[in-house]
Design a protein around this nucleic acid. Sequence first.
DNA 1: AATGAATGAGGCTTCATTCAT
DNA 2: TATGAATGAAGCCTCATTCAT
Lengths: 205, 205, 205, 205
Amino acid sequence: MDRVIISREQQIKDAAIRVFSKKGFNGATTKEIAREAGVAEGTIFRYFRTKKDILLSLAGPYIVESLKTTLINAAGKSDEAVLTSIIKNRLELIKENIDLARLLFTEAQFHPELRENFTENVVMRAAGVLEKYIDERISSGDFKAVDPRIASRALIGMVGAFVLWKEFLLGDKYISFDEDELIKQLVDIYLTGIRAEEWEGGMGS
Amino acid sequence: MDRVIISREQQIKDAAIRVFSKKGFNGATTKEIAREAGVAEGTIFRYFRTKKDILLSLAGPYIVESLKTTLINAAGKSDEAVLTSIIKNRLELIKENIDLARLLFTEAQFHPELRENFTENVVMRAAGVLEKYIDERISSGDFKAVDPRIASRALIGMVGAFVLWKEFLLGDKYISFDEDELIKQLVDIYLTGIRAEEWEGGMGS
Amino acid sequence: MDRVIISREQQIKDAAIRVFSKKGFNGATTKEIAREAGVAEGTIFRYFRTKKDILLSLAGPYIVESLKTTLINAAGKSDEAVLTSIIKNRLELIKENIDLARLLFTEAQFHPELRENFTENVVMRAAGVLEKYIDERISSGDFKAVDPRIASRALIGMVGAFVLWKEFLLGDKYISFDEDELIKQLVDIYLTGIRAEEWEGGMGS
Amino acid sequence: MDRVIISREQQIKDAAIRVFSKKGFNGATTKEIAREAGVAEGTIFRYFRTKKDILLSLAGPYIVESLKTTLINAAGKSDEAVLTSIIKNRLELIKENIDLARLLFTEAQFHPELRENFTENVVMRAAGVLEKYIDERISSGDFKAVDPRIASRALIGMVGAFVLWKEFLLGDKYISFDEDELIKQLVDIYLTGIRAEEWEGGMGS
DNA sequence: AATGAATGAGGCTTCATTCAT
DNA sequence: TATGAATGAAGCCTCATTCAT
C-alpha cells in the first residue's frame, strides 16, 4: 500500500543500470534489459529512442541531485572528524550507486557525450566539497600552502584506490580492510602530511 | 637488418590492443583488428580460436615480463628520491602501455578470467616493489607502524587518481599539472604523513 | 452550421488516402494515419479491423459513385467538342482524386482483391462513357470501323500518358504542356485518325 | 558446361527484381530475396550496403545499356513499317524486363533518387528514338506540324495503355487483344491522324 | 600458411494490434 | 465510444567464425 510507485521510465533505467553495469554497454542486450525491467522489449522504445539514449539518460541531472545535499557542518569539529565525515559520506553515496558509478566511469571512455556530462556533473562536483574545505584550511594557515586541487585529488585518490580495488576488481578475495580502520589510517597519513608545521619553526633548523 | 622482427601473432595482439582500447572489447570488430594488423580477417583465427582468446592473451605472461625489471637500487638514497624514482618508473611503464592498461582495467570488470589474471599478475606485482620498500622502512623504524598494504595502496591511489583523470577521462581539458611538481607535492604530503615522529617530539616541544 | 459533417470513418479514410498515397501502403504507418486524421491510434481499429481493411475500403462503392454522374450531353455538338468535354471531365475527376487514383493504381498490383474491385468499378466504368460514344459514332458511319474497345483505350492512353508523366513521375520538371493546347492536339490527331474517310476520297483525289 | 556464369551480385539483383516486383519494395523482405537468390541473408549485405541500395542499383547504367541498341534502319521503309518496328521493339524490351519495368515505375513514386534516374535514363531515352523519327518526318513535311514531344508521347501512351492494362492490372481476364492486330489499328489511327494532308491543300478550304 | 567470400545467429528497432481505463 | 500504453513478432543489418581455394 505504501509501496513506492516507480514510473515505467525509472523502472527501465534501474534495470539498465544493473545490466549495463554487469555486461557493459555493448555487451548488454535490450532484450535482457526488458526482462530485467519486467516489460516487453518494445516498451523500452516508447521511453527511449535508442539504446544509447538510455545510457546517456543515466548521467542526466537526476543523478547529480543527490550530490547537492552534502553540506558539511564543520563548525567546531577537528580536521579528522570533518575529513572522516566527508569521506564516509562520499563512500556511502558511491556504495548506494556503485553499479551506476562503475558504469558511468567505464563507458565515459567510449562515449564523449557521456564523458563530459559525467565529469562535469558528477566527478568535479563530488570533488568540490573537499576542495573547498581544504582551500579554507590553507587560507586560515592550518594546512600547508599546497595546491588545493592537487591536495583534494590526492585524498580522493587515496580513498578511491581502495574502492576501485574492492568494487572494480577482486572484492575481498585477496585483501580486505576494515573500513573504519582504513579511513582512520588514511586520514592520519594525509592530515599529518598536509598540516602546517607551525611549532617546527621554533626549532630553528 | 637488426630490425625487430615481429611475429604475426604479436602483430595481431598489438593491433587488438589499439582497437580494443579505443572501442572496448564488444565494440571492436575482428575486421577492424585485421585491418589494423594488416592481415586478412581469416588469418586472425589461425592464431586465436576466438575473439575473446585475443583479449585473454593480452593479460598473459608477456605483459608481466616488463614489470620484473624494476629493481630499485635504493642504497644511500633519500626517501624522497626513492619514492620519486619508483613513481616515475611506474608512470613511465603505464604511459608506454597506456592502451593496454586502460583495456585490461576496463575489461577486467566483465571477464572473470581476465580479472584474476590481470589483478594477480599486473596490479599486485606492480604494487609489490613499493609495498616491499615501505615495509622495510617501517621495520627500520623510519616510517610509522601503519599497515604497509594500506600505505602502499594509498600512495598508488594518490598518484593513480591523476592518471585516471588524465588518461580515462578528460585529458588536459579542465586541469593539467606539471608532472614533476605534482609528484613532488604528493611525495611531500605522503612522506610527512607517514614518517615516524617520535624523535621530533623529543627535540622541540 | 451547414458545415459538412464528416463521419469519423470518413475522416480516417481521407487521412489514409493521403498517407498511403504519399508513402505507399506498406510504407505508411497507422500512427501517421491516426495523426493525420486527428484521432488516437486505437480509434482506427474501432472502424477497421486491420490496416489492410482501410485500403480495401477505399476502392469500395463510395468512390464509384462520383463516376456515375458524368452523363455527357452530346446532342448537336461536334466530335471535337464532345471528346474534349469528356477528356476534360475525366481529367477533372482524376485531379480531384489524384491521391486516391495513384494509390489504387499502385496498390492494385499487390492486392488482388483491390485489383479486381478497382479495375471493374473504376477503370472500366471510367472508360465506359467514351467507349459508348465511340461505338455510336462508328455505328453511324462517322468513325472508321475500328474495334471500339481498342479505340477508346487508345485515346485514354494518349491522354493518360501525360497524366502519368505529370502525376507519377516528374511533374513539370522536364517538360510541361499547356493543357488546353495539349488536349487540342491530341483530339486533332485522334479524330483525324479515326474518322471515316470515304467521302473525303470523293471530294479531292 | 556452356551455362552462363552469373556473378553473385547479379544473382541477387535478379532475385530482388522478382521479389520487389511481386511484393513492392517495402513488402519485400531481405530474407525472401536471399532465399530467391539462393544465398544467405548476410551475403546480400556484402554486395549492397542497404536494402534500398539494391533497389537503386536496378535503375543503374546497366539497364540503360539495352536501350542503346535500337537503331532503326528506316531507309526506304514506309511509316507503317517503321512505327510498327519501333513499337514492337519497345514492347519486346518491356516484356523481357516486365518485372523491372513495373518495379521501377511503381517505386519511382516513393524514391526521388530512383525517380530521377529512372526518368532520365530509361523513360526519356526510350522515348528518344521515336521522338527523333517523328521530328524528322515533320521536318520533311510528311507529318503535320505538331509538337513532336506531344506526338511521340501520344503514341507511347496509346500503346502503353494496353501494356498497363495487361501487365499491371488484369492480364487477359476481361479483354485480350491480338497484338499484331492491336498495333496495326493503333498505327493506322495514329498515322492517319498525324500525316500532313498535302492534297487537301488543293481543296482551297 | 593466408585469404576473403559466405554464413546465420542474434541485435536493435519498428509497428500493427490489443486492452484496460 | 475513445484513448494510448503495452505488446511481441518480424525486419534490417552486423559480425564472429568457417572453409574452399
